[in-house]
Each structure stands twice: as C-alpha cells, then as structure tokens.
Design a protein around this nucleic acid. Structure first.
Length: 877
RNA sequence: GCCCGGAUGGCGAAAUCGGCAGACGCAGCGGACUUAAAAUCCGCAGACCUUAGCGGGUCGUGGGGGUUCAAGUCCCCCUCCGGGCACCA
C-alpha cells in the first residue's frame, strides 16, 4: 500500500533520514533485567487492592503450571495473553487480581526422586524457584503476595478440610469397584484421566481394570446442575461447553425389570440355537426370582424386544457361567475381545459377538419369553449393564440379530407409511427415528411413540417393574491415589468405630518426608508404621490411617479461591474477598483441560456454595482457550526434537520480543507456528520504536506552539485510528496479532515522517503527546521497552497505572477517502472524494474520471450502485 | 459414524457488517551507508499474458454449483487437514 493512500506525508528521501552513528542501540539484555529487578523488589507494584477499596474489580487468571522446572512456549503464550490483558485492565483503572501459583503435587516429583535420589519436596521447591525466575525474567506482572503452592501444608490442609466436609454430607464415600489402573504410574486414574483406554500421562500405556476399594466424590449428585448451568456460561467457548455436555451424557429413558425364568425351566432349552426365537407366552406357574433391570431410551419399542443382552461382566452371567463351563469359556472370549478393542483404542468398531446363555427372561409387557444372551458390545458401567434388544429399531441390535438370526419385529413405523406394505417396511430397517406410530404393541398400538413412552413408563411404575429414569454417562470422581506425593486423605479406620474422619483440630495430616519411594506400587505411606498407626478420636483405641493420597486435580479445583487470601490460616479463604472477586472475569488456558480440570472446578464451586462458603454458582465467567504452539507442523515435544526454549529466545531477542512474537504470529485462539525469524522481526520492530522515541524524547520539554500542521494532523489521525483498533480488540475480539501489526503501521508512518519532523513540521507538544500514547499502546505487549521509554519521555508515575490513551473521534477522522470504482464489478480506477461525500458527488466524480469515460464509451449505464464511503459500481451494457 | 474448528502468495497471516484480496511480519530481490561485513535506512515483490517502455489485460482465497450490481465472506454439494466424542442402550 502506498503511503499516500493513508493521506500521510510522502516518504522522505533516504538522505533525509538521520542516521547518526551515535544513535543508542536497543539492548533488551540490559534494559529488561534492570526493570525485572526493580519489579521483584516491589511486590506491591502488581498487587491487587483489597476488596474494601470499592473499585471495580477484574480477576484475570491463567492456569497454574505444574513445576516441571522449565517453562515451555505454551506457557509463554498463555501468560503473554493474560499479562497483556491484566496490564490493559490496570491502565483502564480496574483493581486487577492477577495471581500465580504452582500445581505442585504429582507423579513427576516422585519419578525424579527415584531417578535422582532427591526428595520430591526439594525437587519441587527447586523447580518452583527456577520457574519463578523465568516468569520474572519474562516480565509477567503477578501478585506474588498471594502465591499458592499446593504441596505445602498451609494449602493442602484445606483439601483435607473440604474432604471431611464432603464426607460429613455423604459427598465423599468409599466403595469397592472396578477402577482404572495405570501400571506406569502404579496408581488408579479417574475416568477423566483415561483417554482411548490409555493413561493421560502415558500415551503408550494401556490402562488395566482392577477391583479396589477407593474414595469417591459424588460429582454425579451435581450432574444435572453441571449440565443445566452450561447454558449460563455464555462467556465460554461453545466447543468446551459441548465437550462437557457430551461428557455428562444425560439420557432420558426408563428402567424396566425383566424376570428371569427359573433355571430348571431353562434346562429344557440347553442348545444355543434355541435362543434364536421368541417363544410363546408362558403358561402356568413358573418361578421368577431373579430380575434383570434394563435401561432403555425407547420403552415404546418394548414389544419389539426379541432378546435380552447382558454385559460379559454382568453378575448374572457369572452365575450362569458357574453352572456351565462351556458358557464360561465363551464369556471369557467375549471379555478378551473387549479388552483387545480397548487396547487398539477402537472400542466403537469391535465386531459384535455374543452367546446364548440357555436362560430366558419374561417381557413384562407382552409376557413373552426372551432368550438371554451375553454380548461383547454391552458395557457393564453404563445404565444397568443389560439391554432389551430391539433389532428392528436399533442399529446395533439389528446388526447383532442379523448375524445370529434373531427375530426382528417391527413395532413402530413412520407416520406416513401405508400399513401392510411389508416389503417397504423391510427396506427401512433398522428404523430408529423418533416421531413414529406404534403397531403390534398391545394396548399401545397406534399411539404416537412419545405418548407411548410416557404411558408405558407409568404402567411399569404402577405395576412395580420399572419407571421413567435418567441416566448419566458421568461417573463419580475416584480420587484415591496409591502414591506418595499428594494430599493425605484425612481418614482413620478403627476396628470399633469404622471409618472416622480426622478431627479438624488435628489438621493438617502432614505428609511425612522420610519416605522411601519406589515404583513397586502400593501406597508408599503404608510402609511407614509411625504414619499408619494412629489413635481413634472416638474411642481412643488404635486406628489405622488411610495411606492413599488425593488426586492432584483436587488441588486445582479450588486454588483460584485461595489466591484472594492465601495467608488465611483459619479458613480456606476470606468470604468477603470471594464475594468481591468472584466469579473470575477471565480464565485463560489450554483446551486440554476442557473436561478434567474445568468440570471438577465447577463441581467444587457448587459444593462450596452448598456448604455456604461462596455465593457464586460458577467459578469462571469467561473462559479463553488458546491454541497450541507448534513448530514444523507438530506440537513441540522432546521426542520430535522441535522444542524451542523460552530461555534461548529471551537470551537472543529479549523477553519483550519473545512475548510480542507469541501474540503477533497468530490470533490467540489458533495454533501458532513458531518461527524464529519472526521473533527476530519483532525484535527489529521494537528496536525501531526504541530509536524513534529516543531520538525525539527531549522534544516534550521545548515550549513551541501547539498549532497543528498538515503533518501533525496526519500523524495524529493514524495514532487515534490505532488507539481505536486496539481498544476495541481488548474489548472482546482479542486479535492481538493485528493489534501489534497496527502499532507497526503507526511506527512506519511516524518514521516515514522523519524528515518533516526534523524540519519542524510537527509541533513539539503534539509530537510529545504522540510519543506518550505510542508508549502506552505498547505497554501491554512489550512492557519492558514501554517502561524504559516511559522513563525517557519523562512519564509521570508508574506506567502500569497510567491511564490508557483516550480515543478521539475528531482526530481520527479522515477528510478525504479513496473510493474504488468498478465497471460491471471489475475494478477500473480509484477516485478521491471527501469522506462525507454523498451519492451524487461520488457518482459524478467517478463518471468524470478519464478511465471510467474510456471504459463506458459507447455503452449504456444501466445502473449505478453508489455506496457512500465504500464504492461505486457501474453496470453497463 | 456424529459434533466442532480450519484450508488465502515461497512462509506466518490480514480483510470485524457482502464492497479495492494479500494489511503487518518473515524469507527473497535491488539500492544507500561501509575499505568490507554486521547493524541500519530506502525501494521492489500473487500468478500468467502483453508492451521497447509507460502501461494494458486475464486469472486468482481447497474443488463444483448457486444467490447478488458485487462473494474469501451468504446458500447447497464435495475433498483434505486438525481436534473432540463414539457400540452410552
């Protein structure tokens, strides 16, 4: 684009540009540490004011890191976004809370302990120090006065305190169940931590199923509210809300009990082939002791049920198999297939297999006998682990019935299908659509399917064999971990009193330090007799201490509340501070926590609300998920060898350039392709700013007239257009890449006017104002440079508290604009008109143009489309 | 299979409401400064055709259709890439 298009002064000739060899150089390696030290020495500088200040508040939060010892580029990007926002909001006059902390419990510390023979605590604390150093070097404006470190007793005691509160209300409970076991971690994992049958931390490691007694948190009590409140979270990405909705997996339907025929009866039909047909209704008395509850979303199709299918692990299957070795073998084979499918990460594509058990159940609606099968596509842990199979109206049942020759009976039809057209009916199978009509369904025939669902569920409830019900995919949160480096679960086991919580006054249950950590499995704390042996607070007798520790996702479920009052030793936080600061105005982090951390946090907040500790229903008002940092087309990882170290970048180009590049290279929600040449480019740009401002820094003081000139007006116009653009972007769009591009454009315009400035065509007070605003605009993106230049131009007070530049519409307005002129939609020329020119003026100007005259000569102008401020398009024939 | 994103020069990208496609930056090319280099500064730059040159023309936002005076943008169909969910009864 030519500069004249912007109505800016023509570019000066090269010789007009001052190029003094004495010009100071931009040296971030000197500037940045100077300010970093100053900031580190003044912890109040970025401190939030107390709630009592009464100022409008803004709580901006970035997800706290695990202290691995090294920041990676994903962190840098995350924090650069949050820091820019925090600084901007400060400059807008808000009382900003911008805290940071450490998600400091977890397995890597134990692994490092084994490898280096360093105690986990020492390793963790060292890493925290190193990373805090990196953060300071990056110039991140955190309020360190409320730093939270989750592995310290003053934090984790409140995990224990919350746990006991939950235990008292039945929200924490112990049960034996099948759990996910990662052999690599040597511990149990929550469902949320299993991805495609593999451990979330060990992509190569298959998760095993083990039967263990574990502590669970009753997140399912909140399933409905967690689902409902998603609709309130309109500041969250739709993608995250959808992921949570799917994870919660609400499904409305009915539970129906099918009675099992007594085994003596079944013995008359031992052959598996007998299992293919529905037999006539029972006559006479049959013993029906056992019931199979079945969950279905389509009770309206129950007359079409032609078999019962059980999960291979179903308890009844075990019973049947106990009396039938051949069946036992076949069930084992089914289990193997399931396991293999899990290992292949391809659970959905497993080939369906099944086996007839030799037993029958009774359809409570039709009294028909249905063969009971075991099938590998039935999951024990969803619904009741058993289904009624309706092949005509379910894709999976249809596939299975076709394979094994089971009956297929049509009981619902589309509203419009003419009756009796058998061939046509066959062709639509399996017919699974809702909004259908029932046929062959006893009293319910010819009802609409939704109406039938209600009536049938009501009938089942009346007769005590079923009811309408809702099933969730979400399971309770298993939090026991058989590892050392975590919060001890504050529970005691007394022979006399059973499970007893540790009394509040004995909290925290301290995590002992003298523990031998091995990869053997089994809780390391169990090997410390002095830890295990305790006294029952109820009877005073001997008790055994719980030796498992809590999932570290407990730590991160409420840490952001603690930031408001991290030194409180009487309560997890000050409720007055919470009332003021919550909900979090803006939370920023990676999308990988869309389900795990973000659903646990929502659950924890609802529990705390019900405990009367907080008033908000949700912790986070607005959520932003930034894109990944990739390089050479792949996510940065050691194994791919494409990792770029933040330290290297800072050493070479400075923290400002590194941060600004992280914001400049892509919009923050998209993946960012790291290109080192790009960092160099941003660094060059910062150098240009540095030199330009430095060159003119002393102009502020001279007292010349402030009468605007054509040049100064052009510069101010560009400046205020830039202010408008960036201010609007912070308001919501967050395209910091184009914000930085806009500052680059501004600087390009300023340096292009260098010769006019040198010639005195810009009054000093105006130039000084431009420099000041330029520095302020830069502050959120390159804080070190901005501070350095703020000092040079004699800025008053701390830059962070300086008010954000105010956009002036009058200064930004263009007098004359360029209007493209098209003939039949093709660009022919560009005309200049006054910005507020009306349609007639625009059309006349266009028609007077030589190129347009030539282009329309000998033709008829059929139509002239004139859009004020936009374009002229002449339709000619 | 279902649900979200995405696809624009050699590269990262921009175009906020349907109105000059490629802002800004990288890499590249030419020039200035320099003994030289670095640094810095100035300029050129989508592809193709045409012109001695000035210039002129055609094509162009993954592919195909459509709506419109006008489409990267709206509608329909399709391809590829990334992510999430998945025998959920």
């Amino acid at each position: 684009m030519s500069t004249s298009k912007n109505n800016t002064p023509a570019a000066p000739s090269a010789s007009a540009v001052p190029s003094s060899p004495r010009e100071p150089r931009y040296t971030p390696a000197e500037i940045e540490p100077k300010w970093a030290d100053l900031w580190a020495a003044n912890p109040d500088l970025y401190g939030a004011e107390p709630a009592s200040s009464g100022k409008p508040k803004y709580y901006v939060l970035e997800m706290l890191p695990y202290p691995s010892g090294q920041l990676h580029m994903g962190h840098v990007r995350n924090y650069a976004i949050g820091d820019a926002l925090a600084r901007y909001m400060w400059m807008q006059g808000y009382n900003v809370l911008h805290p940071m902390g450490w998600d400091a419990f977890g397995l890597p510390a134990e692994n490092a302990a084994i490898k280096n023979n360093t105690p986990p605590r020492q390793w963790t604390i060292q890493n925290i120090a190193a990373m805090k150093q990196q953060m300071n070097r990056l110039g991140l404006a955190y309020d360190w006065r409320n730093e939270v470190t989750t592995c310290l007793p003053d934090y984790y005691r409140w995990n224990q305190w919350f746990f006991i509160r939950m235990f008292e209300r039945g929200l924490a409970y112990r049960k034996k169940s099948k759990v996910n076991w990662c052999p690599e971690c040597a511990t149990v994992l929550a469902n949320e931590q299993v991805i495609d049958g593999r451990c979330w931390r060990h992509e190569e490691t298959l998760v095993e199923q083990r039967d263990l007694e574990q502590w669970f948190l009753r997140i399912t009590n909140y399933a409905q509210e967690l689902l409902d409140d998603l609709s309130k979270l309109d500041g969250w990405p739709e993608k995250v809300r959808t992921m949570q909705r799917n994870w919660i997996g609400r499904s409305e339907g009915a539970e129906v009990e099918f009675a099992v025929e007594d085994s003596e009866q079944a013995d008359e039909h031992p052959s598996r082939h007998a299992g293919t047909a529905v037999l006539p209704a029972l006559e006479g008395a049959v013993t029906l002791n056992k019931k199979i509850p079945v969950f279905t979303t389509r009770i309206d199709t129950i007359y079409g049920a032609t078999s019962i299918q059980l999960a291979p692990e179903h308890p009844l299957v075990k019973e049947f198999a106990a009396a039938n070795p051949r069946l036992a073998d076949e069930v084992t084979a089914l289990l193997e297939q399931q396991k293999k499918a899990r290992e292949d990460g391809d659970v959905g594509a497993i080939e369906k297999h099944g086996v007839f058990t030799g037993h029958y159940a009774v359809n409570p609606f039709s009294n028909e006998r249905l063969p009971i099968w075991v099938a590998n596509y039935i999951l024990l842990d969803y619904g009741t682990g058993a289904i009624m199979s309706v092949p005509a109206h379910d894709d999976r049942d249809y596939e299975f019935a076709k394979k094994y020759g089971l009956d297929i009976r049509i009981v619902v039809l589309p509203h419009r299908t003419p009756e009796g057209d058998g061939e046509k009916e066959e062709s639509i199978l399996p017919f699974t659509a809702e909004n259908s009509l029932l046929i062959n369904s006893g009293d319910y025939t010819s009802l609409g399917n939704v109406e039938a669902q209600h009536k049938m569920a009501a009938f089942a409830e009346q007769h005590g064999f079923g009811k309408a019900t809702v099933t969730f995919r979400l399971k309770d949160w298993g939090i026991s971990r058989q590892r050392y480096w975590g919060t001890p679960i504050p529970m005691l086991y007394c022979e006399k009193d059973g499970i007893v919580p540790v009394p509040d006054e004995q909290l925290p249950v301290l995590l002992p330090e003298n523990v031998a950590i091995t990869q053997q499995g089994g809780s390391p704390l169990g090997k410390l007799p002095e830890f295990v042996h305790a006294t029952c607070p109820k009877c005073g007798g001997p008790a055994r201490r719980e030796t498992d520790t809590m999932d570290t996702f407990v730590d991160s479920s409420w840490y952001f509340y603690r930031y408001t009052s991290a030194k409180n030793d009487k309560a997890p936080f000050d409720s007055a501070a919470i009332d003021y600061w919550f909900p979090i105005d803006q939370y920023i982090g990676g999308v990988e926590h869309a389900i795990l951390h973000l659903i646990y946090s929502r659950f924890w907040t609802k529990v705390m609300r019900d405990l009367g500790l907080v008033k908000n229903d949700e912790p986070v008002a607005r959520l932003f998920t930034q894109g990944m940092v990739i390089r050479n087309g792949a996510k940065m990882s050691k194994s791919k060898g494409n990792v770029v170290s933040p330290d290297d970048m800072i050493a070479r180009y400075g923290a400002d350039a590194t941060r600004a590049y992280a914001l400049f290279a892509a919009p923050p929600d998209r993946d960012l392709d790291w290109q080192e040449d790009g960092v160099a480019g941003v660094s060059r740009f910062l150098g240009r700013v540095f030199r330009f401002v430095t060159r003119h820094a002393d102009r502020a003081a001279d007292g010349t007239s402030s009468q605007p000139t054509a040049t100064s007006q052009a510069l101010q116009r560009k400046l205020h257009q830039t202010i408008r653009k960036i201010t609007e972007d912070f308001g919501g769009r967050w395209h910091f890449n184009t914000c930085i591009a806009a500052i680059m454009e501004l600087v390009n315009v300023l340096t292009a006017a260098e010769s006019q400035i040198a010639a005195g065509e810009v009054p000093s007070p105006i130039l000084a104002a431009i420099l000041r605003d330029l520095v302020l605009l830069l502050a959120p993106f390159a804080p070190y440079l901005a501070c350095e230049l703020w000092e040079q131009i004699g800025g008053q007070g701390d830059l962070l508290r300086a008010p954000w530049p105010k956009f002036d519409e009058a200064l930004a307005r263009e007098d004359e604009i360029e209007i493209p002129v098209q003939i039949n939609g093709k660009l022919r020329t560009v005309i200049r008109v006054a910005a507020e020119a009306n349609q007639d003026t625009m059309r006349d100007t266009a028609l007077a143009d030589e190129k347009i005259k030539a282009g329309t000569a000998g033709k008829t102008i059929v139509k002239a489309i004139v859009v004020p401020g936009k374009l002229v398009n002449l339709v000619v024939k």
